[in-house]
């Protein structure tokens, strides 16, 4: 394990016991994520990409191997509030305004009122939602709600951002826009981001490292270090380098499926 690995997994495994016998959600997963990396996890349903993220977050207990987050166990890292987690749905509380929702983790973590106000203002600016503080979630579009939920995950200054298909439910135009914004945000904040997705272009466009996973048992099929520069305009997606990476991801996904049946 190198010292700059923020997330390090060794021979990680997770087996769920179900009525139909054991399900191997994760098997022999070895992975290092360095500080400042943008790592995407891509693969078909059941490949364990969400499960891996939940293990990192301390929401699931691994049954084999080791994993450290910031050098601690995931549960310690959770208690130390080392990460912000963005779920597939925005999950804003309908009885709180946008500002109130962003404030929620800050209230729980015991920030002073003045500090809360300051941080809410800052992160809402970061996701381009200033002026919507007093709106209720239902008054915002799906994309704006998801941005608010990202702001909420950023509010308490965790170095790690875990994102589980955050844009999966949005249409492609909104998704492009949010991808671009997310890259800008990543460049500005220097956070380490782990990002689960179903979309090849999204994974290639965003990541410095793409983890291709395959199902039954859930494992890592390929890890691709992206040759693309960190600075990425949207039209980088038409360059040969981009298409080459996308091709390699697609091949990996196909191969991961091939020896299944």
């Amino acid at each position: 394990m190198t010292s700059d690995a923020v997330i390090a997994a060794r021979d990680l495994g997770l087996t769920f016991q179900t009525n139909d016998g054991p399900v191997h959600a994760l098997k022999d997963v070895n992975l290092q994520i360095a500080r400042g990396d943008f790592v995407s996890f891509i693969g078909p349903s059941g490949c364990g990409k969400t499960t891996f993220l939940r293990v990192v977050a301390g929401l699931e207990e691994p049954t084999a191997g080791q994993i450290t987050v910031n050098g601690m166990s995931p549960d310690e890292a959770r208690r130390a509030r080392a990460y912000g987690y963005v779920f597939q749905a925005a999950g804003l509380f309908p009885w709180r305004t946008i500002a109130g929702n962003v404030k929620l983790p800050l209230e729980i973590m015991g920030f002073t009122r003045a500090e809360q106000e300051k941080r809410v203002k800052k992160v809402l600016q970061l996701v381009d939602l200033e002026g919507f503080e007093r709106k209720f979630p239902w008054q915002l579009s799906g994309g704006m709600q998801q941005r608010a939920s990202i702001a909420r995950a950023l509010a308490f200054d965790a170095d790690i951002l875990l994102m589980d298909e955050p844009f999966g439910a949005l249409d492609e135009i909104v998704r492009d826009h949010l991808n671009e914004q997310l890259l800008k945000l990543w460049a500005r904040t220097g956070k380490t981001i782990a990002f689960v997705t179903h979309s090849i272009p999204e994974a290639v466009y965003l990541s410095t490292k793409i983890v291709v996973m395959s199902p039954r048992p859930g494992r890592i099929h390929d890890v691709i270090e992206s040759p693309l520069p960190r600075e990425r305009p949207l039209d980088i997606r038409d360059t040969p380098e981009f298409l080459e990476v996308a091709h390699r991801v697609r091949e990996g996904l196909r191969a991961g499926h091939a020896y299944e049946g």
Binding site: L59, Y83, G91, L104, P105, I108, M109, F156
Partner: peptide
Amino acid sequence: MMELDQMKTWNASPAQTFWKL
């Protein structure tokens, strides 16, 4: 489950989960 997991990621106490969620 998602809302409860969310509270867990913020390390919220059972009392906070009760009053705020």
